[in-house]
Amino acid sequence: MLLRRASDGPMWGWRSPFAELERMRRQMDWLSSGLSRGLVGESAAGVFPMMNVTEDKEAYFVRAELPGLKADELDISVTGDTLSISGERKLSVEDEKAQYHRRERDAGRFSRIVSLPAQINTDKVEARCADGILTVTLPKAESAKPRQIVAKSS
C-alpha cells in the first residue's frame, strides 16, 4: 500500500514517505517523553532559553521565546555546526513607591550552545527578533544538503 502510494502519487518525492515516518516517530518520541515527565517537568535540556529547532531542505531554523529582548541585545555566534546564544534579560525599572501584587517575570543572564545535526554555512546565518521570538536561520553547508543522484544507464 505504501509502495503503491509512493509510486502513484506524483507529488511524493523520493525521500518523503520515509521522512514523514521519521517525523512522526520523532513526534511520538517527543510526546511519550513528555508523558513520562508529566508534560510539566524539565524540558529536554533544561537550559534557558528553550528552543525549537526545525529544518527544511535548505536550512535549520532555531527559535526561542525571548519576550522584551531585541536582536542587538543578543550575542549570537556560529562555528561549524554549533550555535551559541547569550544575553541578559533586564526588566524595566519602575517607580520605587510601586506596590507589587504579582511578580512572575524573571530577569537574568543566559547562555546556551546547541549542536546542529549537520554543518552550517556560517557566512549566511541570519537572526531576527520579532514579537519576542528569536528566529535564527542557519543555511546548511553544501555538503550537508540532500542531493539527488541520477543513475546513468550504460
Partner: peptide
C-alpha cells in the same frame, strides 16, 4: 502568560510576557 502587576497612587500597571503575539 507570566505577569507583573504593580500599583501606584494613580494607576495599576500590568506587564505580561506574551511572545509571538502581535
Amino acid at each position: 502568560p507570566a505577569v507583573d502587576i504593580f500599583e501606584t497612587d494613580s494607576e495599576i500597571t500590568l506587564l505580561a510576557d506574551m511572545p509571538g503575539v502581535k
